[in-house]
Design a protein around this nucleic acid. Structure first.
Length: 932
DNA sequence: GACATCACG
DNA sequence: GACGTACGTGATGTCC
């Protein structure tokens, strides 16, 4: 292949990222008028491109040009050194959505636009510059980045567009004190705090240049380091040789980046006015559009003042009308829908099933919607109604496409990476489809969008959202299914009724999506949605479908043992009471204790009944034998009914495993919630309860692996509130509760008693919960004044806590929400309420950023985990707030611990740089009791 | 279906 | 000055 590039050619390489960041910081945060899309950086970028084109139109005009961008955050340099660029700030929330637009802008100007996954722009620039130079051409790199200065030389120069200044060999020498060919040597020694290149400690650019000029190059210098007179310098160079050599690799540009294009592809082209105008008009840049139109001698398109027609925005109020819903009964009728979906690139999907348990429920029908108001329902396994079929309803109803045929037609669409599938609670539908061999991707989820934007404001179910944002009450399901004993499953619903109901759900989902989508960036939660909510769907889907093995025999044995013990206790209790009564009835127990036996401390709750909670019975236990027996009975009753009995019913007959369902939007703080069954509250605190975990087992040849964050909430508190003493204690690996106790009670660590430590521990937790004297007093069973004294002392010793609490509450009062370190917003609707509500809201506001940040951290870890353990015989099974449980082949335990721990401990990177390191403890065993 | 109770982090 | 108080969840049994 011969190239046309050669002598006489002049290549311009523009550092796109530099343009973007300069544009972003130079301009105020402009937004597009019609939908609020942040657009400031794009505007600045276009201005700079325009100016560049203008300035380079003369006789010196380049023959070839390209704008080069960075792509992805992980490059080969991260593999060399995992801390490379680790202290880089996360991209600002309002800049993110502008990144793809800058690429579009470049193309609109008809300038080549290049980027390559895994490489920095600088490497591509280096590769192209070398190719062009070697071909005999001339190169100008439009950038002032010092990292590019190593490329300057014969035929290659840089141009600082900001200062309007050329940078040649002399310019490089001025900056580094050496010529371009030795720049990397100087950089390797001097390091770079911005990119986190370590270099040689204590040596800056000046010293580095001095040394390099004296010894010729870095390698000679390092080989002859012994000769250096200054002892400190000599020692550094001898001891840090490896680090310096690594630094050189980090700063050295890759001049052989594998490119999928050639210099000839970069030949300068005239702008195509139509495309350029269309882009500028779409961005709604009025002045710039006009100016460029004038220059090109074309007419500027009119930019409407009225909100522009945007793809993700309802065009007008289209009424809900069931007569526009089509019942699709055969392949022929389905085809037009598939065509529309492919044309649009998105579709709202909803499934109807025989039940709410995704691991058991059968698929009954599928509804689709591509534009508001028109939707279809594809019935698949509806049963003939009783009137049609006197012999029961086992026969399939007439007029339905065979399930396999429908799935075969839909599968390519549902799995097409270029078609977005929109759902309300997509995890449910994805799990159903997965059981029928369809892997739905990519997805958007209106429930998760609502949660990201309105967490804490209201629920995120479809009915709530439809009423609130579409002003429409969906058809209720109750009349179709009935309730109680006579309730039927969806497959028994007549197809006509089902069509009206099901198609409407898809219609609502699409409308909600159009409503929410453009708002995500307006309220700055795009990153939260895209990194903490949506990616969790496939991860949780896999965990839930995999399930955890639970041994029925173990549970059954325990149930029997509990039943026996309970019977004995019950008899004793009745004896002590002098009558038989229902021990499980708090009301009856209260009367026995406080009326019949006249024990002290009888307090009536708001319903007029005595309270008989564990703490009250605990106090009463010193007075009488009965309360202790009841406490014991209650513990057994709880363990039996909630765990050993109920868990058995949740063992899936097909898989022999228990499949919980995680709710992503269940907790206001960002935590997950586990239901059906709840596997996040399996007993552990008492010895008897803990034994239930012995029933959670690994398959033969495997073990369970538990990795949990150590004190994650206190670490986050130390970071957020900026408590130096706490940070230091974590850095030193101290026992944090003992250290707190030592600080507060002036007890040296080596004289610490368990009781003092216990009190400090209660205070540490109290702080996370928004401490009060009353609460602490009750928890520690000490006088309220004493508890208040502890708290005062705590605030005195750790003054940042008070400030954090006050600042958080006032932020909540002003904004109506609080935020986690990762930008999750938790709305605090009651914060300005009067009365007792206010106290609750305050404490919740104080707790939310801490609990929520911890929740974000483990979410990030979970999202990254599948890739990290993909090559290992390991599966992630459960999440319990600060713990992840894995099942792994015995021979891969250590590798899995290492991989999973790396992910968990580094989960906050690079978005948030924590002042306190995250620490993960690991345990393994044949069952969960041993592993934890 | 509300309430009380208790399991977890 | 009084009020009511630790934060976040889900499942179970009683009782109306």
């Amino acid at each position: 292949m011969t190239s046309n590039f050669g002598k006489g050619c002049h290549l311009h390489l523009i550092d796109g990222s530099a343009f973007i960041f300069r544009a972003y910081h130079a301009l105020p945060p402009l937004t597009r008028k019609s939908d609020g899309l942040p657009i400031g950086a794009v505007a600045g970028f276009c201005n700079m491109l325009q100016k560049y084109v203008e300035d380079n139109a003369g006789p010196d005009a380049p023959t070839h040009v390209a704008v080069i961008f960075d792509k992805g955050s992980h490059t080969f340099r991260n593999d060399l050194y995992d801390l490379y660029k680790a202290n880089r700030e996360a991209m600002p929330e309002d800049l993110r959505p502008q990144m793809p637009l800058t690429r579009q802008a470049t193309q609109a100007f008809n300038i080549a636009c290049k980027e390559l996954e895994g490489f920095e722009a600088d490497d591509i620039i280096a590769t192209l510059a070398v190719q062009a130079r070697d071909a005999g051409g001339q190169v100008t790199i439009v950038s002032s980045d010092k990292d590019l200065m190593q490329l300057v030389g014969d035929g290659v120069e840089m141009f600082d567009a900001m200062k309007n200044r050329r940078i040649d060999r002399d310019g490089v020498f001025e900056k580094f004190g050496v010529g371009p060919e030795r720049v990397v040597d100087v950089q390797a020694l001097a390091g770079d705090s911005v990119d986190n290149v370590p270099g040689a400690p204590g040596i800056g650019v000046k010293t580095a240049a001095l040394l390099i000029n004296e010894y010729g190059d870095l390698e000679t210098l390092l080989d002859r380091a012994e000769e250096i007179k200054q002892p400190k310098r000599r020692q550094t160079l001898l001891e840090k040789r490896e680090q310096i050599e690594l630094s050189k690799k980090l700063v050295q540009l890759d001049e052989a980046t594998p490119l999928d294009f050639t210099l000839d592809d970069l030949v300068v082209k005239d702008p195509e006015p139509e495309a350029l105008m269309a882009f500028l008009a779409e961005m709604e840049f009025r002045t710039l559009t006009k100016r460029i139109a004038d220059q090109l001698g074309v007419e500027a398109p009119t930019i409407k003042d009225a909100p522009a027609k945007s793809e993700a925005e309802p065009q007008e109020d289209i009424p809900f009308d069931a007569s526009n819903y089509e019942c699709v009964r055969d392949a022929e009728a389905l085809q037009p829908w598939l065509g529309q979906i492919r044309e649009r690139g998105w579709v709202a999907v909803d499934t109807e099933t025989t039940g709410l348990n995704e691991m058991i429920a059968g698929l009954v029908g599928i509804s689709l919607c591509v534009e508001p108001g028109t939707a279809c329902y594809i019935p698949l396994t509806h049963r003939a109604s009783a009137t049609d079929d006197l012999f029961g309803s086992d026969e399939l109803a007439e007029g339905q496409m065979p399930l396999e045929e429908a799935l075969a037609l839909l599968k390519p669409v549902l799995e097409d990476p270029s078609i977005l599938k929109i759902g309300q609670n997509m995890k449910y539908d994805a799990k159903i489809f997965a059981r029928y061999g369809v892997a739905v991707a990519p997805i958007d989820d209106t429930m998760l969008m609502s949660y990201a934007m309105h967490g804490g404001e209201h629920g995120h179910g479809m009915d709530t959202l439809s009423e609130r944002y579409l002003d429409h009450t969906p058809i209720p399901i109750k009349p179709l299914l009935g309730s109680g004993k006579s309730a039927i499953t969806f497959d028994k619903v007549p197809i006509d009724d089902a069509t009206a109901y099901a198609a409407e759900d898809a219609d609502i989902t699409l409308r909600l999506w159009q409503h929410f989508k453009p708002q995500l960036h307006q309220v700055q939660v795009t990153t939260v949605y895209e990194t903490l909510e949506r990616p969790l769907v496939p991860v949780l889907t896999e965990m839930e479908m995999h399930g955890i093995k639970v041994d029925r025999e173990t549970l059954s044995r325990m149930s029997n043992a509990f039943a026996q013990k309970m019977a004995g206790l019950e008899a004793e209790i009745h004896d002590l009471a002098g009558e038989t009564f229902n021990v499980g009835s708090p009301a009856q127990l209260g009367e026995i204790l406080f009326d019949k036996m006249s024990l002290p401390g009888g307090k009536r709750g708001k319903t007029g009944k005595y309270s008989t909670g564990a703490d009250i019975l605990e106090d009463l236990a010193t007075e009488h034998e009965l309360p202790r027996r009841v406490l014991d009975w209650r513990q057994l009753s709880k363990l039996k009914s909630t765990y050993t009995d109920a868990l058995q019913t949740h063992i899936n007959p097909d898989t022999g495993r228990v499949h919980t369902s995680y709710s992503i939007t269940g907790a206001n703080t960002g935590r997950l919630a586990s239901t059906d069954p709840n596997l996040q509250n399996i007993p552990v605190r008492t010895e008897e309860g803990r034994r239930i975990r012995e029933a959670f087992v690994a398959e033969p040849g495997n073990v369970l692996l538990s990795l949990d964050y150590s004190q994650i909430e206190l670490r986050i508190l130390a970071h957020i509130a900026g408590i130096d003493a706490l940070k230091q204690a974590f850095a030193d690996g101290l026992d944090i509760h003992a250290m707190t106790a030592s600080e507060m009670f002036d007890v040296p660590l080596d004289e610490m008693t368990p009781d003092i430590r216990r009190q400090a521990k209660a205070i540490n937790f109290g702080v996370i919960y928004g401490i009060s004297g009353f609460g602490l007093a009750r928890n520690l069973r000490i006088p309220r004044a004493e508890a208040q004294g502890f708290i005062d002392r705590y605030f005195e010793r750790f003054p940042g806590i008070r400030t954090y609490m006050d600042d958080t509450v006032s932020f909540a009062k002003e904004h109506g929400y609080v935020q986690t370190l990762f930008g999750r917003k938790i709305h605090t609707t009651e914060i300005n309420a009067k009365g007792p509500h206010a106290g609750f809201a305050k404490r919740a506001a104080i707790n939310a950023p801490i609990q929520g940040t911890a929740a974000d951290v483990i979410r990030r870890a979970m999202v990254r985990m599948p890739a990290a353990i993909a090559d290992l015989p390991a599966k992630m099974l459960l999440q319990v707030h600060d713990e992840l449980l894995f099942e792994v082949s015995e021979d891969a335990v250590d590798a899995t611990i290492e991989a999973a721990r790396d992910v968990m401990e580094g989960a906050s990177d690079p978005a948030v740089k924590l002042d306190v390191r995250l620490v993960v403890d690991a345990g393994k065993g044949a069952n969960w009791a041993e592993a934890h």
